[in-house]
Design a protein around this nucleic acid. Sequence first.
DNA 1: CGTTTCCTTGACCATATGGTCAGGATGAGC
DNA 2: GCTCATCCTGACCATATGGTCAAGGAAACG
Lengths: 218, 218
Amino acid sequence: MNNKKTSKTKSTRIQEQNRQRILEASLTVFSRYGFRGTRIDQIAEVSGMSRSNLLYYFKRKEDIYRAVLNEILAEWLEPLRAISADGDPRIEIGAYIRAKCKMASSAPEASRLFANEILQGAPMINDILTGPLKTLVDEKAKVLQNWMDKGQIRRMSPHHLIFAIWATTQHYSDFDHQIKAILGKSIIDEEFGSEAAQSVEDLLLHGMLPRHPEPNID
Amino acid sequence: MNNKKTSKTKSTRIQEQNRQRILEASLTVFSRYGFRGTRIDQIAEVSGMSRSNLLYYFKRKEDIYRAVLNEILAEWLEPLRAISADGDPRIEIGAYIRAKCKMASSAPEASRLFANEILQGAPMINDILTGPLKTLVDEKAKVLQNWMDKGQIRRMSPHHLIFAIWATTQHYSDFDHQIKAILGKSIIDEEFGSEAAQSVEDLLLHGMLPRHPEPNID
DNA sequence: CGTTTCCTTGACCATATGGTCAGGATGAGC
DNA sequence: GCTCATCCTGACCATATGGTCAAGGAAACG
């Protein structure tokens, strides 16, 4: 039953395939309707397999949900982790913003899944938010604070700055439908994606960099 | 008190009261679980009345949902409408940002309801998004554009600027739970609310104002 | 008081939904 | 081909859910 039986039972490529198929379909449906609003049959339909078969791979609806969540969680936080205290803030934060925009463009459903989960009170990932996420954010806030102390970026609340980056970038995936209604363009569209990325990066960098064009301190 | 009871027109204070009670409870539940994830019984429970009685006032779940949506829609767009083309951009946009933050603080559920509706593809308000909302946004985008042409704010995509304001302000209500997990503070808390408002206003204004401290051009 | 209209309720129904199960189909190794 | 483990399915079940209904209260109003 348990995957990984060390040597032999390799979870049979077919198993690997179907699990993946289910997870992909689940991401689509869960990201749209949230946990409670999602019906197993929908996932089955989207994944193109019978509900019975789907339940053969995941005993419970909640199991699928948690699996999807876990699968994208690490990758989701990666860009923030990548911010280096030793780098130049313009470069580091600029890269972070671009990475987040890239993700909004290439994985909008993941963003919406988290949005949905948070909206519903984060019942499944609350421990992650208050644990690893908080730790990571606090750590990077210190990095920002350090840059501020050195005068490399303007003095402001580092936490709020992080929230602003999250908000502006994720907005393009979470509210994609609204933006589509207003502009007729979607973040999925690569061209619009880079246009949005540039806008956000420009606005935020200008907002956080000191007014007097900071002399190169090399 | 009973001014208009003679004709068959309802009003009937008791009716007015109960409808309101239902709408309030509905906002709470719908904003959390979205349309599909919400159960009528939940609304009944939160509103403190029997499901039968609730269905006496609203025949269908969808009727309640639409009613709530409509009730808060106009008020939701009001701040954007209030932006005056004749004012100073710093004042106008600053006021807009503060108004949006205020709403995020005082009516976070309304924000979350919209967020949920958009996430689910805006099935109920798509016509509003592509109609009145788009019109309003386009109109205000022109106002911004005009300010840019006059050099009062930096040149950038006005639409993306509006999105950035929406994103940063609404983030505090939509992702309140996440912020609470990280900072231990909620946008509901008045003190934190104004702290957030200041941060956002400061960051965005600095981001959009020209670098060289714009001389008063009065 | 009686009547009328409005308000509330519990019982009821059809269907949707999450989840189980026994057994049949399929494929891999022999 | 044969065997066994894996894979898949339709039938089935218990409960949840949206929604209806008839009838029992309460309030207005003469």
